[in-house]
C-alpha cells in the first residue's frame, strides 16, 4: 500500500550520517510545531482569564500582559448580578447529574446484556445504538421539541432537559466493549453456583468494570455540561436554565448594555469552563483512552 521509497541500498555508510542529521532536524521541527500548536490552543484560555480579571478592558496588545493594578474580581460580581451563578451552576449540575445517573444505571445494564447475555434481538438493539452515533442531531431537534414540549408538557423542567440525553450511546458502547473482554467462565461459574444475573452484575461485573465506568461517565459528563442548543430550546424560565444557556442569553441580549461587557462575559465563561477543564485534566488518561478506542474502531 505504501509507495516504495527508493532502493539505493548500496551506501549505508553515507546514509547513516545523513539520516541522523535528518532525525535531529525533524525533532526540532516537531518541537517547533508542538510549541506553536500549544500557543494557539492555550492563548485564548489565558486571554479568557486575563479578560475576566481586568477592571477596564484593555484590548491592545499590551492587554495580553496585564497590569496588576488593573486586576479585579468585580467582573465576577457583575456577571453574578446578571446571571445567578450559583443557581445556574446547580441547574447545570442537576442536568448533568441526571444524565450521568441514567447512563450509569440504564447504560450499564444494557452494556452487560449486549456483551454477556444471549437473547434474540440483541444485535438489533446494538445496531440501533450504532445508528444513533452517526445520525445528526438536527434530524431530531423538531420532533423532540414536539414530543417533549408539546406532547408531554416538559418544557422548563429538568426531566425535559435530561430525557433526550439520558443514556449516552458512547457510554453504552464503552460498557459493552469492556464486558466483552471479560472471560465468560468468570460468569459461568457464578451461574452454576446459582447466582442470579443481577447478583452477578452487582458483585462481579460492576466492581471489575470500575475503570470502564469512570471512562464512560467522564465522556458523558462533558456532553450535558457543555450542551447549549437543547436546554436553550426548552427553558424559558431563568431559574431553570443551565449556566451555558444563561450565559449565552446574556451574551446575545444583555451584554451590549453593560459597562465592561467582555469582562463579565469572560468571568462567566471562566466559571463555565473550569469544571469541565478540571475534570478533564484530572481524568485525562480515561478521556484519551476512550478517544483512542474510537479511533481503533473507526
Amino acid at each position: 500500500m505504501t509507495t516504495p521509497v527508493g532502493s539505493d541500498r548500496g551506501s549505508p555508510r553515507v546514509a547513516a550520517p545523513q539520516s541522523s542529521r535528518g532525525v535531529s532536524w525533524g525533532r526540532v521541527a516537531g518541537l517547533v510545531v508542538l510549541v506553536l500548536g500549544a500557543l494557539v490552543f492555550l492563548f485564548p484560555f489565558y486571554y479568557m482569564v486575563v479578560g475576566a480579571l481586568q477592571r477596564a478592558p484593555q484590548t491592545d496588545i499590551s492587554g495580553a500582559f496585564p497590569n496588576p493594578a488593573n486586576l479585579t474580581l468585580a467582573n465576577f460580581v457583575d456577571i453574578n448580578a446578571q446571571v445567578d451563578l450559583v443557581r445556574t451552576l446547580i441547574n447545570s449540575g442537576i442536568f448533568t447529574g441526571g444524565v450521568l445517573l441514567a447512563t450509569f444505571v440504564i447504560g450499564l445494564l444494557a452494556g452487560y446484556a449486549l456483551a454477556q447475555l444471549e437473547f434474540r434481538g440483541r444485535s438489533l438493539v446494538f445496531n440501533l445504538m450504532l445508528l444513533i452515533l452517526v445520525l445528526p442531531f438536527q434530524l431530531f431537534m423538531i420532533p423532540l421539541y414536539v414530543l417533549i414540549v408539546r406532547t408531554y408538557g416538559l418544557s422548563d423542567s429538568y426531566l425535559g432537559m435530561i430525557l433526550p440525553f439520558a443514556v449516552n450511546a458512547t457510554a453504552v458502547f464503552i460498557f459493552r466493549q469492556f464486558f466483552l473482554q471479560l472471560p465468560r467462565e468468570l460468569f459461568e461459574s457464578a451461574r452454576i453456583d446459582g447466582a442470579s444475573e443481577f447478583m452477578i452484575l452487582r458483585r462481579i461485573a460492576v466492581p471489575l468494570a470500575q475503570p470502564a465506568i469512570i471512562t464512560a461517565l467522564i465522556v458523558t459528563f462533558i456532553g450535558p455540561w457543555n450542551e447549549f442548543l437543547w436546554p436553550f430550546l426548552i427553558t424559558k424560565q431563568h431559574d431553570l436554565q443551565p449556566l451555558a444557556v444563561a450565559l449565552a442569553n446574556y451574551i446575545s441580549t444583555v451584554a451590549a448594555r453593560a459597562a465592561n461587557p467582555f469582562g463579565s462575559i469572560l468571568a462567566g465563561a471562566v466559571v463555565l469552563a473550569v469544571p469541565a477543564v478540571v475534570v478533564f485534566v484530572v481524568f485525562q488518561r480515561q478521556f484519551i483512552q476512550s478517544n483512542l478506542g474510537s479511533g481503533v474502531k473507526g
Binding site: A244, I251, I265, L266, A269, F280, V281
Partner: peptide
Amino acid sequence: FFRTSYYIPYVTASVAVIGVWLWL
C-alpha cells in the same frame, strides 16, 4: 503537556470559548 493543551478546547463549552473569540 502538548496533548493535554490540544484537547482542552474540545472539552470546553462552545458558549465559553465563543466569549473569548468574540472579544478577540
